[in-house]
Design a protein around this nucleic acid. Structure first.
Lengths: 255, 255
DNA sequence: CAAGCTGTCCCACGATACGGAACGCTGGAT
DNA sequence: ATCCAGCGTTCCGTATCGTGGGACAGCTTG
């Protein structure tokens, strides 16, 4: 078995992260991890020692390994370092208070959309779960559609090459239809998605440009379908989200 | 210069995390990172490529490297995986709504206390900053004192060997005094710290045992000194925090 | 246009990670 | 009490892999 040198990677780093990812599924022992990753036990053990020294993993009281505080530290450094999050937060809170539903900040990452921050209404007992960090397919969430609708033709064409999963019976999977939808979203300034991702959730999003002028972020409001959007005026709510997105963009780009 | 084989670590993993830590201070280029870590440029470049492949770092539009989404994913996996956090959250929200001040969940890690989760009042414009993941010296924060007060004599004695920094003029640094204070906290069930960590913050905490019966967690309320605790009855608030801690402990230990 | 940056790539070298096997340990079954 | 199965760690010879000095290309500066 030879290490494929075409990869730009450093083998041990690659493997170490493989172990970390395996651990993100839950605590595990050396043998278990060895199975999950396909690496020899001794290698796993050695890498775990190295990771433990870096506080990236730690052993719980049962002796099983789990992710450690080092990861948490890096994670929060990441959070604090991103000024987009800082700028967007108060605007998101405002939007959340207006609607009483959860507001999220997203970023397009390849064909996936990630939530960087979610603001929940703490007084609400039924809320959409926290999607922070969880990737979602861009074609089924409004944030993805909104960002792509405002991206270059080339980026859109590239995106539309994909096979799109039909997550619910409402999911739009036809490339031609999606292209038309992009037009609509571009003129509207916002994107509505009604139960295309899950049957239980509906949401609106609007995209905005970051400090470098690249459109790769969006904010969205999402709530349980049984009460959201309800009978509120979708156009008005859409415009409000779009307006908030514009304000964030303006604040990020001091001319 | 040879790699010291006494360390249990894997050199490249160790170095990779060194780079990640350096990056947690902010985005940087290869040369900059080479200076910060003392590693040759080419080594840094190669490790960065490896990390980029793992999405642990990414290049922003200016070409500088910064921490990537892979870290965020692991970070959230960490959060979700820890059942203590799940159990504690609703109780913390309750406490936050009662007082209007930020509530935190802590864990003792050596001589440091880490915040695992902080619940803020989104309607409050002036709040204590988010301390999630940031380590604080155990002798100056109530969570640390509360946990240690309920730890074994041996652990206390070991802890009291340390040199304690005098962070403000109120910081208690005398081991003998701290030992007495532990007694008091133990009988009270909670620990108050008035401007011993920073001049601007005061807080109460109470410790509780995890599912394995080990006392290493605590919850606390903290707020800006100018309004917190104000003229509320400190004993009553302390008891309330202690009661909440007890409820979390009970929920974690289903007999 | 040169000088001084940057980050990436190359490649011979050998230090270092590798992994099969042996080890010590724990806990359950017999 | 004894075995055995499974655990995680350690050993150690091998050779793969990471290493780092230097060359290189691109970009900004004076």
């Amino acid at each position: 078995m030879w290490y494929d040198a075409r990869m730009a990677g450093v083998q041990s780093v690659e493997r170490a992260f493989g172990i970390l990812r395996a651990l993100s599924l839950g605590p595990a022992g050396v043998t278990d991890l060895s199975d999950r990753t396909g690496l020899p036990k001794s290698t796993v053990s050695r890498l775990l020692s190295a990771l433990e020294e870096q506080k990236a993993v730690e052993q719980n009281s049962e002796g099983a390994y789990e992710l450690g505080v080092g990861i948490a530290e890096l994670g929060t450094a990441l959070r604090g370092g991103q000024s987009v999050v800082e700028v967007a937060r108060p605007h998101m809170v405002e939007l959340m208070e207006l609607t009483g539903e959860a507001v999220g900040l997203n970023r397009l990452d390849g064909d996936q959309v990630r939530t960087l921050l979610q603001v929940d209404d703490p007084s609400s007992s039924v809320v959409v779960r926290d999607w922070t960090g969880v990737p979602s397919p861009a074609h089924a969430v409004p944030a993805g559609l909104a960002i792509l609708a405002n991206s270059s033709r080339a980026a859109q064409r590239n995106f539309l090459q994909n096979e799109f999963d039909e997550l619910t019976e409402n999911t739009m999977t036809d490339p031609a239809m999606l292209l038309l939808r992009f037009e609509q979203i571009r003129t509207d300034g916002y994107a509505w998605v009604i139960e295309e991702f899950t049957e239980d959730i509906s949401s609106v999003a609007a995209a905005f440009a970051d400090a470098n002028g690249r459109i790769q972020f969006a904010i969205h409001i999402h709530g349980p379908s049984f009460r959201f959007p309800g009978d509120v005026d979708r156009e008005e709510l859409g415009n409000r989200v779009a307006a908030t997105a514009q304000r964030i963009e303006a604040q990020l780009n001091p001319d």
